[in-house]
Design a protein around this nucleic acid. Structure first.
Lengths: 397, 397
DNA sequence: AGTATTAACTCAATTTATTTGAATTATCAA
DNA sequence: TTGATAATTCAAATAAATTGAGTTAATACT
């Protein structure tokens, strides 16, 4: 049978209830703190309905009550807010060299994080490591295991889907016929979502970064290559086959640098950690992690500076492209690139003055550095789980 | 108060009903013809609910009954399909030189179309012309005025929003402080939606073109400049400020052709009618419409061929870009560019082999020419109205 | 040919969740 | 002190979906 996209599913009283519950939670998240009547106005539900949902949420321990606050005449409204510790989520990033883990609460606070080096990246070993980290990080965070809603696991694709950006480079070996979702579900005993780094980064910013109250923004993610994650009107763009955002292989200069993909002029060959490492290697400099890179930068290494200066124009070009194509509220830069380097790159960028993004009524910066730093992917994994709580949608498919 | 995006609005029984009605209509549209039980399965509603909705729709005249068709055991299902003439929509394109109008039925059939030259493009005169065309085109289509659900009007922006692509070039004069929505509502006496050409084209393909059963596709629209319209998972991308898809000012070559916008290397200066006209003018050839252009092409004009050959590489570059960023099922090319030219351009494009779009399980062409031809914008306007009938969404805002 | 099986559809009763309207409470303003 | 205003709650009403039993008309099997 023809597949019908998820939104085209009927509704009923139960689904309506779930939807409304999430609407209420979402209102509380964006308003921070609010009374029943206020939520009713924002959600266009009746006061009574909101009242019912609030008391339900309260009895389930989701809320904090902040007493009555009077604003003018009338009975002062009882203020509610989300109890950050009501639920938590586990986020993990699986790399070929290490596993990162983080526990995040509803407010997006990181309660604990951890890193374990990986020597043997075969599925069973990774699963075992992941399982161990779950326990250790739960201990560190001092939360009951029962508060974990689920785990968002970030790992190099392709998994099931066909990807390209990391093709051959960072894919884990021995994972060909492995279903990571099933593997980690078993290892962790909680609901698991598998996602790739760029999309995780998008959610990281939404739950605790620059995008808490943004609905349309883009994230340029420095991984091995470079990816683009887009939130458009509260929906993440995934593309028909789940491969949207392959920024690294966008050609920015016909006949430019040859790329491993067979084309030439791909962005990835100008702006990415991969291109940076290549440039440094040509000058006999070898760095293995972000700290060394940052040290090089602090030392004013001329080769690094050289790369930065050559990278800024292509980066500005694609930022302009993203602005023109997606018209986001902001573009966020982040991922596996040390903050000072990102800041420098951002400072060097001349944003197109004639762009549609160059408007006087703008309330958000055109370009900013992401807030979550080096833990972006792991935090993003957790953020995916947290975010699901707040996204109302009829039809859970 | 903080604005909450439209999806974050509560639901109730009534809104649920509306949603389910649209789900049923949408099922009928994609399945073409179906029985109650079949729709129930597709929509995950109970048979009874679907049955109720179907009988309601039927008594309101929305359906055609095609008798029972037996497929294996059991009571053969009564087949229903949407009665194409149950409702119609008016589509109009306002240009500085002419107004186009079309009447389209639910199935996307064009029942009538018309063109009126415009000599005086001041708002009142255009409104008068539009009103007149409504009557004439209704007569031509032989439909009752009451079947018109509304009008989708396509005109050069910016209207309220801040746009760029046509800045200065095709904007209508004397329309500065005019609210076209209000103006045309009064002139036509039916609900009016104002939209720009690119987004209209997206809907045109969805209602009657290549995208009837696509959920994710992109439309590269040749207007004065060049625009990109994207349907992502059934949602049109508009951007935070309504300016998404400014393909014309995407820089495809740093330091390339200077553009009126102040940048250089904008796509518009390589591939667009504007650039084509400029190229021909340099060779003392002046064309005023598509027919003349087509004649030139048929005659094998060397200057035109020259332009085509220079345009195909930049076009291929942005097609690759769109594939990488949006991962659509198909990319559709259309708008104010004669079909033979589009076909030639498409034939000249070498699609990137390493692209994420280059997959073996693909069921749809990577690139096709749009079906609606020169009337795209007007048909698209009507399609917007038609499409609203089929898009289920809780919360009419 | 006859019977069992299957599937679509209908009717009536039930269930879920929202809305409505009246009553209550607490604050501000005059 | 009194009246206006707004938040909240209670009880009753309402809307619409689901459930389960029953009907109908096909195909499959014996």
């Amino acid at each position: 049978m023809k597949s019908i996209s998820p939104i085209h599913v009927g509704s009923n009283a139960e689904r309506t209830k779930l939807h409304n519950r999430q609407v209420v939670l979402q209102c509380l998240r964006t308003l921070q703190t609010a009374g029943r009547a206020q939520i009713a106005r924002a959600s266009k539900l009746s006061t009574q309905t909101v009242s019912n949902i609030i008391s339900e949420l309260q009895s389930e321990g989701w809320l904090l009550e902040a007493g009555r606050v009077s604003k003018g005449r009338g009975l002062p409204a009882i203020q509610y807010s989300i109890r950050p510790t009501a639920a938590t989520a586990l986020g993990m990033e699986i790399r070929s060299d290490a596993v990162f883990a983080a526990v995040v609460d509803l407010a997006g606070n990181t309660l604990a994080s951890d890193r374990t080096p990986v020597t043997d990246s075969r599925p069973e070993r990774v699963a075992a490591a992941v399982s161990k980290m779950k326990s250790s990080v739960i201990d560190k965070a001092k939360i009951p295991a029962s508060s974990l809603l689920g785990a968002g696991i970030v790992m190099p694709g392709p998994f099931g889907r066909v990807g390209l950006s990391d093709a051959g480079q960072s894919t884990l070996v021995g994972w060909h016929d492995v279903d990571p979702q099933a593997l980690f579900s078993r290892a962790l005993n909680i609901p698991v979502v598998i996602e790739h780094d760029t999309i995780a980064a998008v959610f990281a910013e939404r739950v605790s970064g620059h995008a808490i109250d943004l609905d349309s923004y883009a994230f340029i993610y420095f991984g091995t290559g470079i990816g683009l994650g887009v939130m458009a009107n509260g929906q993440v763009l995934r593309g028909a086959f789940g491969n949207a955002g392959e920024l690294g292989h966008v050609v920015i200069e016909r006949g430019g640098n040859p790329c491993a993909c067979g084309n030439s002029g791909c962005l990835e060959t100008y702006v990415s950690r991969f291109s940076l490492h290549k440039h440094l290697a040509k000058n006999n400099i070898y760095v293995s992690d972000g700290n060394e890179l940052e040290a090089l930068y602090d030392a004013g290494n001329p080769h690094l500076n050289d790369w930065l200066d050559h990278a800024s124009a292509p980066l500005a070009q694609v930022i302009g492209m993203v602005e023109n194509l997606f018209d986001p509220q902001s573009i966020i830069l982040g991922g596996a690139m040390p903050a000072p380097l990102l800041d420098y790159l951002i400072s060097q960028i001349t944003l197109a003055p004639g762009s549609i993004a160059d408007r006087s009524d703008r309330l958000t910066p055109r370009v900013v550095r992401g807030k979550s730093g080096r833990m972006t992917a792991a935090l993003g994994g957790a953020a995916i789980i947290i975010n699901e709580l707040f996204v109302p949608r009829i039809a859970a498919a």
